[in-house]
Design a protein around this nucleic acid. Sequence first.
DNA 1: ATGAAAAAATGCGCAAAGTGAATTAATGCG
DNA 2: CGCATTAATTCACTTTGCGCATTTTTTCAT
Lengths: 221, 221
Amino acid sequence: MPGACERGEPMGLRERKKAATRRTLQRAAVRLAMERGSESVTVDDIVAAADVSKRTFFNYFSSKDEAIVGDGPPRPDDEAREIFVAQGPTGDLLEDLKVFLLAPLAGTDSDDLRQRLADIRERKRLVQQEPQLTPRLMAAFADMERYVGESVAERLGEDPDDIRPQIVASLGITAMRFSMRRLQTHSAASGSADSQDDAAEFRALFDQAFDALRRTFRPAS
Amino acid sequence: MPGACERGEPMGLRERKKAATRRTLQRAAVRLAMERGSESVTVDDIVAAADVSKRTFFNYFSSKDEAIVGDGPPRPDDEAREIFVAQGPTGDLLEDLKVFLLAPLAGTDSDDLRQRLADIRERKRLVQQEPQLTPRLMAAFADMERYVGESVAERLGEDPDDIRPQIVASLGITAMRFSMRRLQTHSAASGSADSQDDAAEFRALFDQAFDALRRTFRPAS
DNA sequence: ATGAAAAAATGCGCAAAGTGAATTAATGCG
DNA sequence: CGCATTAATTCACTTTGCGCATTTTTTCAT
């Protein structure tokens, strides 16, 4: 969502530093929140830990909570959206939706992906530990849901305010949430769990969710 | 969600005043936000308009946004939940879910209902006018979704973390959101629109949403 | 009624959250 | 190198949110 790593560009020093700063802040925020509880962490604490000024913090995040809870799932880029809108790769709505939603995980190189999944894990652990954060997290998905809803509406040639696109989007997001939520739960025991497996596991969970959808749903008439 | 009008009790002076104060604050908040944009409204402005102290404001709302965006949909009470969990009135999942979600609208007398729907309308108009508020609004639904998900899980005898209850809950909430969202859009022109019609209209929208669900879904095997 | 108990509203004050504007430092590029 | 851009910092300031002691209002038992 930031001016992030669009299309595997080399990504100059400048952007790398930016990304680094952002991640440093986010990690400090999450770590401190895990240690003392998010309520008793101040922005000053976070910036002290990350060694930047308070103002810089607010250049990256518009609120303390945003830093702690994260930005929600990454958006599929325009290319993926176009494919999806044009009756996607297969023509089957659910299958194409799955591809669409997974698009952001497809391109990135595995180091980056590794990092991201690890961060997701960490944040989920935190949210589980502090349920008050759940609404914030849900809010982070709101944008995404709207985006998906609009894409579905366009694909189906319906109005975004119609009920069907909203239903479909809601289902896709639910699958995403489900997968992310499950990612955290287990592990921790198996210290050897290679992060490569994380990606595989995420995909597996996502597949499982979509299988359930397919079982529950009647194919669009 | 507040200690509101549980079980059509007479509701003494005390509670009535409390409710009045709350509503006054909320309305002032919404009105001002509509006029100048929510960003440029301060709590001081709100309390000035409502003629209470700032401290009182924070006794009712834990944040400015909470006053502006509202509390989300009202929760079904325990009685409705029990009925639903015990395979609801009809035994059909979707039908019973509909009844469950509409329960809070069933008991209240029409004056109260009238008010509530009017307020919902107003708030939705505001959110539409200021999309940045959407995430906040979604957050308000998060609690409800969890609650519904747990109820569904219990009814189905599954784990709340399983995918199916989450799917069903997500759909119910989507229907609710859809109905609330549509409520605002039209009218405004027909000044004569009796609020009694509002309730009817809301139910109609809700029915429409559930019809769509029924069409899209495969009955639980 | 009436006075004690309970709960709500208020005023004060402070720690923390956020923000605007000017300044300084670090990159990118010719 | 030197110039344009963009990021980071500093500083001063507004707003938020809440703890606490005090006052006002409502309730209720007698």
